[in-house]
Design a protein around this nucleic acid. Structure first.
Lengths: 190, 190
DNA sequence: CACAAAAGCGACATTTGTGACATTTGCGCT
DNA sequence: AGCGCAAATGTCACAAATGTCGCTTTTGTG
């Protein structure tokens, strides 16, 4: 659990220390205070989220902390393997969940940057997953890519419920990769 | 009753050991001194209270199963309400999950001390949940109480797969409470 | 008992927070 | 473009908090 001081951040952002403190005070940048006089600390992941959110470049020293993990949720082994192969070759970490319980636990445990979600898994309603996830404040950074064979109406509904992007089945490897890199784009190059 | 040394805390907080000692000296962080030359020790609960009080993030390794929180997994509203009512009156915290995804996420997020699990929920195979949970090393402290209307053969199988106890449906409030307190008894006393 | 690793401590170096004030930036207006 | 205003950012000095270093003592492990 690495943290950064205001001074570190001031250097990375090429900005005055005073300004960093103001960002934190105003809530733009998430941080917390040490007991003493309230010296500020920022979790690396929060800092990266901050950079990402403002389209700022991530310093090389912090590249290692960039989260490029993708959770693949689908009950069909064939699909998950295909997606994993494509994403791995593009340099992403992957985890696979074959049912709702695994999906939920792995999501909370591994905190992936993106989840691919099949809407129609037996016993798991993709829409209620979307609703549930979007209610969790600490998953706010999670990108969701819905992958489904359902019609446009259902895809639209998924978007409305909080999916970041949808992909109809069948899809090409190209389409998948461009969707994922589009969502994680600025952060993932190694 | 686990304790932490100043070095541990220094690592968790990403802060210098010297600073931790100063926090303790100043009374910000509650601790006690060993006989020798006064090496410091801090109770985990005091440390967590300290982190909490200052809005600092709690390392995941420490938030495991030191609570009296029970996760109730069942798709039938009536059942979950009944269980919750019984457990609440006995002083337990409760969370409810109505499907597999919620169960998985809440399990990892809240780290309850015990989970009641229905074996036959639509779309969620209780047995595979047992298998999955018992494979996760950081869930080793979790107690699982299986609640099911299935026959003895299936209950035995659940026990074999890692359930700590089973309870046939229907059950009385008494039976439920004695099962839960039996499992948590030794762990939750504070 | 011996040895390695961790912890305490003092002195000193460095960083950080704060307030008051100067400077720059963004933006609408003429 | 020029102007003016408000918001954001930079500057500076000082006090407080935190980090560093070297050394000693304690604790952990065989």
């Amino acid at each position: 659990m690495k943290t950064l001081s205001t001074g570190d951040i001031a250097q990375w952002c090429d900005v005055n220390l005073r300004t960093v403190i103001r960002w934190i005070e105003k809530g733009d940048l998430k941080g917390f205070k040490l007991p003493g006089r309230g010296n500020n600390r920022v979790l690396v992941e929060d800092f990266i989220a901050f950079l990402d959110h403002h389209g700022m470049p991530v310093p090389e020293e912090l590249q290692g902390f960039v989260n490029n993990c993708v959770l693949i949720v689908d009950d069909e082994e064939a699909i998950t393997r295909a997606i994993r192969r494509a994403l791995r070759s593009a340099g992403f970490e992957t985890i696979i969940a074959h049912d709702g319980f695994q999906a939920g636990s792995l999501l909370m445990q591994e905190k992936p940057a993106l989840m691919t979600l099949d809407l129609s898994m037996p016993g798991l309603d993709g829409f209620s997953v979307l609703e549930f996830v979007r209610q969790q404040p600490n998953l706010s950074g999670l990108k969701i890519l819905v992958v489904s064979a359902l019609d446009q109406h259902n895809l639209d509904r998924a978007l409305q419920l909080g999916a970041d992007q949808v992909l109809g089945k069948p899809f090409t490897e190209q389409e998948l990769l461009s969707a994922v890199t589009g969502l994680l784009g600025t952060v993932t190059q190694t």
